[in-house]
Amino acid sequence: MTEAGHLVWRRGRWSLRLRRRGVAALLGLALALGALALASLCLGEPTLGPGAALRALLGPGDAAFAVGTLRAPRLLTGLCAGACLGLSGAMMQSLARNPLASPDLLGFTQGAGLGAVATIARTGAQGVGVAAAALGGGLAAAVLVGALAWKGGLRVWRLVLVGIGVGFALRAGTDVLMTRTDLFSASAATQWLTGSLNARLWSHAAQAGVGLAVLGPLGLALGRGLDRLEMGEDVATALGVRTGLVRLATVAVAVGLAAVAVAACGPVAFVALVAGPIGRRLSGGGGPALGPAALTGALLLCAADLAGRVLLAPMQLPAGLFTALIGAPYLLWLLATQIRKGAL
């Protein structure tokens, strides 16, 4: 059944209603992501045709190592981490009703980075331990930024300014830790400072995948509450939303998603900042568009990684460099428009 602008499906007590524009955005992004994924498997040294790349992925052969061991886990890690970042950013931006409020500007990402590096430096740990430390660091940063910005209430511009300041301090702490331990090779250092998908293994992909599988549905489920909260605390409560719970859960899940991404590929900048507004624009506005934002994040991170891998091959540039190339001008533009609107 259809109705202006929506697709409606009903059976007994159950009913679903999807905005056409949102569905179109999801489908378009999924197609683009599929094409990008295929390109990631094909391109590099050696460059393969699509058929050959898929055969190499499935079976033994000359290219099995390049595709199955190097490119596929890297791609999968990028997809999951990018989706985590996009979702995390869109959730925080919706909660704050401000496009500046992304986890990388609020210091969450840098906190997660410091937590991860501190654990690696102290114990040499890998895997789940790093992810847990990233989560701890992210949550600690969120609490710290919230506390420092608190002034009888929270204002977005205070949060962002404090978040940027705290983010720089945490980043400096990460630098110091890394120079004082010899656990970090040059490529590991790049990953922890810029964010990179270089040398990701199936274990990284699995970890990011599990993180996304657990936190992603929680985040998407909060979308309805966030939708209503965008109409203000009073209207949302009047409509029966438990606003305190939605706020708390949103921050917790958003920090968790950012931590999963940071544990997988380091503190990649700007993906979380940029993905939300793109997702919202593509799906026609009117809500946080969490699904499109997640797919946009995945698309951005994988595209940045592919660019870093093949543009100047054999030199490998970190994905974080390319996301910064897109993100930094966007941030400047955003700041300029926000200042002009008087929001800052």
Binding site: A4, G5, R19, R97, D227, E230, M231, G232, D234, V235, T237, A238, L239, G240, V241, R242, R280, G284, G285, G286, G287
Partner: peptide, 25 residues
């Protein structure tokens, strides 16, 4: 709060509309 919301509705003085939302939505 959800059960209250089925019985009691409120329209505040200056409600905020999410950017880009249509009247129908």
């Amino acid at each position: 709060t959800r059960e209250v919301a089925r019985v009691l509705g409120l329209l505040p003085q200056t409600p905020l509309a999410p950017e880009g939302i249509t009247v129908a939505d």
